[in-house]
Amino acid sequence: MAHAETHDPNTPLEYRSEIGRLNILGFWIFLGAEIALFATLFATYMVLTPRIADGPALGELFEVKSLLIQTFLLLTSSFTCGLAVHEMRRHNVKGLITWMVVTLGLGLGFLYFEIQEFLHFIHEGANIGTSAAWSGFFVLVGTHGAHVTFGIFWVTMVLIQVAKRGLTPATSAKVFITSLYWHFLDVVWIFIFTAVYLMGMVMHHG
């Protein structure tokens, strides 16, 4: 394995080691696979939406307020995550950790409201076994939620490593990769926001 280190001072730290560069490229490709994974869940959801059996229609239970809270929490967390990487590139460890902790807080907030919403739906008589449509809803949105949960654990662990070891080519590549993951979850949410919630409400009322 070639192990050439690049010492151009203008190169961001995470790109300076061969392993860092390989890992970042590999993770981009993994995100391509994730796109195919979520596309399959979206396809399933779209096909099954009208099939509500005896249960409530999807749009009937969606609420704008809860949706907006979740959306803004996640959008903002994506923004603060970007600021964290911005600080990392200025070699500001404190700024990096601060913005990442804010990101984690927003992520936890998102999860809190998502779980509240799920509990509300279950209370209203819609769970994973109610109908094909609700199965599709819970598994699509739940898979995204599981990704966010995993992301929170992952980012936390990477932050511990940054705190212990400081910013090195290895740790900064890890931070950068977790940031890609986090932004990607926001991209997925945009499509959940549109294809699940907005479309569900349009179909129900329109």
Binding site: A36, T40, F42, A43, M46, V47
Partner: peptide
Amino acid sequence: FVAIVIVIGSV
């Protein structure tokens, strides 16, 4: 491309 094929194709 694959995502569009999967979603639009399946529907």
